[in-house]
Amino acid sequence: MNENVLEAREIYKSYPTADGQIDVLLGINLAIKRGEIVAVVGPSGVGKSTLLHILGILDRPTRGQLRIDSTQVSSLSDDQLAKLRNSTVGFVFQFHYLLPELSALENVMMPGMIAGKKAEELIEPARELLGRVGLAERESHRPNQLSAGEQQRVAIVRALINNSKVVLADEPSGNLDFTNSQTLHALLWELSRTLEKTFVIATHNLELARKADRVLELRNGKIVN
């Protein structure tokens, strides 16, 4: 079996603009193993978010090959991509992006519901996950009744409910104060170790990056280390 959960070969990404185009990614090659925690660093605007969106098949590269959990992605239709995203990828963004009308528990259950599972099957696993991040008591609260740190923890376990192989986190602590970031980082590590999840984390936070198994530095559209 292939050890790599993610494999990218010669990924390019350009955006069309009013005057020509801007080339953001210029040939990205990488392989990420199961259970690995990888930090993606680089100055603002270098293309970290762009890369994460492509690795999470939220966006298509201009060209290049991406393999996710042994599936070759480029030939899939949009609907097939959506299904694959639902079953293998979890996202955590800088802002929590929880659905405001739903409770914490319902938010965590959402990706499972999209996968077609019944609510009854999802309640227990969702409770268990909320418990892991210390939010067992808050399951019926709406996102706006939670603090930024708590919202972000809900978003993290939402990314795990479908047993996703890969969690892509785009500056997950970018919006948090020091203490909350510390808590969040510790949780990311614990979850990754106990559940053997692969995390790819884009961050400006050097301390977070130092703790990663591997650091990928983006510069001028390429990975430089």
């Binding site: 999470g56 939220l58 949009d78 609907d79 959506a82 299904k83 694959l84 995203r85 639902n86 079953s87 990828v89 996202f91 992006y97 659905l99 405001p100 959402m110 990706p111 999209i114 996968a115 939402r158």
Partner: peptide, 14 residues
């Protein structure tokens, strides 16, 4: 935004 979130979690266009 909510539509985008649902799609990011794998909801299909359909």
């Amino acid at each position: 935004r909510e539509i985008g979130i649902l799609k990011a979690m794998g909801a299909t266009s359909k």
